[in-house]
Every structure is written in C-alpha cells, then in structure tokens.
Simulated assay, not measured.
Amino acid sequence: MSARLNHAQPYVLGFFRIVVGLLFAAHGAASLFGILGGAAGTDGGTLDAGAWPGWYAAVIQLVGGGLVLLGLGTRAAAFVSSGSMAYAYFHVHQEHALWPIQNGGEPSAMFCWAFLLLVFTGSGAFGLDRLLVRRTATRGERVPDQAPVTA
C-alpha cells in the first residue's frame, strides 16, 4: 500500500499545486477586475490601482497563483505568495482577534501554509518546471536542482 501511495505522490502534489494556484489566481482576479463572482474593494468594486496593501496583494495573488497553477517558477512564486499571505494574516486579520476563526484569517493562513509546502516540495507532476528541466537535460546543459521525486 505504501509503495502505491509513494508512486502517486508527484501526481497528487501536482493536482494540489494546480488547485491552490487556481484558487489563489481567481482571488486576485476577483479583487483586481471584479470577475469570477468577487468584488473585494471597500466600495463593493475593484481595488484602486496602487492602493496599499490590497492592490499589491491582488497582483501577487493573480501572478503568483498563475505561476503556481502552471508550475512555472513554482518555488519562487510560492515563496512570495506565502509571504504575502503571512503579511495579510499578521497585519490585516490578527489585529481583530487572535484566532483565524475569529478574525476571518483562515484563507490567509491556509494559503500561507499551502504555499510554504510548495516551496519545499516543488511543482510535482504536470508542471512546466519539469518540462523545462527535461528539455535542458536532453541538451546536455546543467540541470537546476529539483526536489527528488520518490517512485
């Protein structure tokens, strides 16, 4: 049983990355453009360009989520995204109450930890990172370090 689970690990990790990236990018798109059923601005519309910190957070969500979704620069995009969610939790939500269930910071906390996991695991299966690594390896060029995938 354990061998089968280990064999499926990169694929499950790839699906996890895709779902987390999609949800994060959708949140950014909703905040920036008012699409996908969301309107995150304080006036019920989109965020004003350059408004601190919301507009910058939404750009990180859209771009970082898109990169994670595609599995392109996954570790770097996940690192920046995790940091932005840590900032959101500690500087936006925690001032209202200590626990995420009390202060509305559950999504920020969950995204923060999910992206931190991806920093250490990499993109898993189905990511563009892996395609680029394979293409580089077939040309005989130096291959960047990747987390080992257990088979």
Rank of each mutant, 00 (worst) to 15 (best):
L5M: 11
G104D: 09
M110E: 03
A151W: 04
A8H: 01
A147C: 07
A49R: 09
A114N: 11
Q94L: 05
A88I: 13
A114F: 13
A78H: 07
E141P: 00
P144I: 06
V149N: 01
H96C: 00
G105K: 07
S82V: 04
R17G: 06
D129H: 07
H91Y: 14
I60N: 14
L13I: 14
A40T: 10
Y11T: 13
A58W: 10
R135H: 08
L13Y: 05
D129A: 05
Q61M: 12
G73C: 04
G64I: 13
R130E: 14
D129K: 01
A151P: 08
G38V: 02
L36W: 13
G54I: 06
W99E: 11
L5T: 03
V68Q: 03
F126H: 08
L67H: 07
W113K: 00
L36R: 02
A58Y: 11
L62R: 13
S123L: 01
L32V: 05
G34R: 05
H7F: 11
A51C: 00
Y11V: 14
A77Q: 07
G73Y: 08
A109Y: 07
G124N: 03
G140Y: 03
G54K: 09
V12R: 04
A147H: 05
R17H: 10
D145M: 10
G45Q: 10
W55F: 15
H7V: 01
V59L: 15
G140S: 04
V59D: 06
V92H: 13
G124I: 04
A40I: 00
L132C: 02
I35G: 00
L23R: 01
S31P: 01
L98Y: 12
P53I: 10
S81Q: 08
G34M: 02
F115I: 06
N6E: 12
M1A: 13
V63R: 13
D43E: 11
H7G: 01
A97S: 08
V63L: 15
V59P: 08
L98V: 14
